[in-house]
Write a protein that binds this DNA or RNA. Structure first.
Lengths: 336, 336
DNA sequence: TTGAAAGCGCTACCAT
DNA sequence: ATGGTAGCGCTTTCAA
């Protein structure tokens, strides 16, 4: 059994209250007493029992991160920075992965919500009612999902998607395809909308495909209809899907960027590591993780009286790489 | 405030002991009483407070996963499956990322070890003394790091690396390079050793580079010395590094696999998504996560008296893709 | 089969 | 500035 506060108190010749104060509110203890207690505690190897403290205080100093898929680099990077940020503020972080199953999100969030002080829901797909219900019970911050009256960190990607279309237009493309992301995903909708608006603005023909789940296989599947559509450029919902497209295009002997230009999104490692490297819309995912963690921890801070509802938006930008190139031929003349 | 056991007891007209039993040991309660209590509990929306239970029982029904880098697909996949497995057994999972900083591993593990029932250390780099010290205090399972008398899940990759060399030899390569992984990493050492032994067996010349941290930039950096070495094939420590190499080779106008064949390891999404797709050594990471979680939870099971020390090894195999090809020219004649 | 009550380790209020 | 003590919500003997 670990050393308890009572043993420290006995060994230091003070009461348990004093020992407790030395750790919780050191400024309320006289200098020499504190030094003595801390010394005894150290020599005994005492460390406060967080569980006991949680029970007494009613707060656990822990938060839970709920994400659709940790093995997706997009979420991996968010989790990494959010987790790191939370730990610097002495919050422990629970992680739960819904495996892209929207159905289980709610139950999971409710269950986790009871054992933590706050919830960070990343790209949740559940209904607004369910989200409100959860936020009502546990302080919650949403990532990539707006909700009236709740704190959220949003990445509409509008600017980046617009830049992507502008880039393609400038290269001579006039028929663009878009491969949309998952149904029910707010960021998918925003990205699709941004592409649609940009194409309209530039007078480009747009063919839309989707929704597709964010898997490599989705891109592979989307490639054939894409070829058939006659589009010479494609903006995919994200890098994974984009590379699935590239893979299938290679198989079909369609050259990238010779015959078709491909743009991804998220600018994950995949984009840089691909050959040719993928032009992609950069999302500051580390910033997203950091700011969402900060937002949540602020909500939990005892000082704050009126929980500040904020809507943080981060900037996105197009990173141009070799996967996009000028139009080489007229649409429709391709033999494949 | 949430509903407590006392309120349920009052409403059901029984004692708190009985309510407690209904949830913990239902078989010790008479059928009708149990039904009644459970009914009342449900109607009141009661759920046991895990923190209070933890304090009373002395166990938290939670484990911690400590990994070097969650944003690395290798660890991401392990975390994903381990986490999922633990949750099916009603264990909550803490996640902590050391950001590849071996120095902080120990302190982190010690700190986390106090608030959880068990620790899953993935590819730890700390010293054996430190590992023993931690395992002594908290039930621990190691992944990718053997330790006398402790449970661990190991992936020596020997078979897969051997197959890689055999494959390259069969394609006509006679001079192979190896780009080693991080210093202090057990799996790096094992992989290097396996390549060394295989090259010797096949009578191939081997040039070794490294150690390199598992980053894309490491591969980029390793490519130039690789070219200078005159090797026609390279086995990289993992996919990320391999793709860094490919990227730089492309820049240098060295064709893959025309001039140099490249083999990666881990067979992450990166390998499949690359163009040309990367030949890679497949590691059953989901199995690693699942089995390590199982091992740990078995250690924690109350039934077990003598903690079974196991050493689980999983099988690896080479997945051949287009990044490897026959030798096109004699070593040394390349002009680059 | 059920109940009473003593903790689990810590905090926080109330005294002093 | 310090001590006494009543909980926090649940589990677990021990009795009945």
């Amino acid at each position: 059994m670990a050393v308890t506060i009572a043993e420290v108190a006995a060994a230091a010749g003070v009461s348990t209250s004093t020992v407790s104060r030395c750790f919780a509110t050191p400024e309320l203890v006289r200098g020499d007493t504190r030094l003595k207690v801390l010394g005894v505690a150290a020599s005994l190897g005492y460390t406060p029992n967080r569980i006991a403290r949680s029970l007494a205080v009613g707060r656990s100093r822990s938060i839970a991160l709920i994400v659709p898929d940790i093995a997706n680099l997009f979420f991996g990077r968010i989790v990494k920075s959010a987790q790191s940020r939370a730990r610097t503020k002495d919050y422990a972080v629970f992680l739960a992965d819904t495996d892209e199953r929207a159905r289980e999100e709610y139950d999971l969030a409710v269950a986790m919500g009871k054992q933590v002080d706050g919830l960070l829901l990343v790209s949740p797909r559940m209904s607004e009612e369910q989200l409100h219900d959860i936020a009502e019970r546990t302080p919650t911050v949403l990532v990539n999902r707006p909700l009236a009256g709740r704190s959220c960190v949003l990445v509409p990607s509008t600017e980046g998607m617009w830049q992507a279309v502008q880039h393609l237009y400038a290269l001579g493309h006039r028929h663009c395809a878009h491969i949309a992301g998952a149904r029910g995903s707010w960021s998918s909708e925003r990205r699709s909308l941004a592409v649609r608006e940009a194409c309209e603005e530039f007078g480009m023909t747009l063919t839309e495909f989707g929704p597709y789940e964010p898997f490599f296989s989705s891109g592979v599947r989307a490639a054939d209809p894409l070829i058939a559509s006659g589009a010479t450029a494609v903006v995919a919902h994200n890098d994974i899907v984009a590379l699935g497209v590239v893979s299938r295009l290679n198989e079909r002997r369609v050259s990238v960027p010779g015959d078709i230009s491909v743009v991804g999104a998220d600018d994950t490692l995949l984009a840089r590591a691909a050959s040719p490297p993928l032009t992609s819309v950069r999302i500051p995912l580390e910033e997203v993780g950091r700011r969402s963690a900060d937002l949540l921890l602020d909500l939990l801070a005892p000082g704050e009286v009126p929980p500040p509802v904020e809507e943080v938006r981060v900037e996105t930008e197009l990173i141009v790489r070799r996967s996009t190139g000028p139009v080489r031929q007229e649409p429709g003349t391709r033999t494949s």
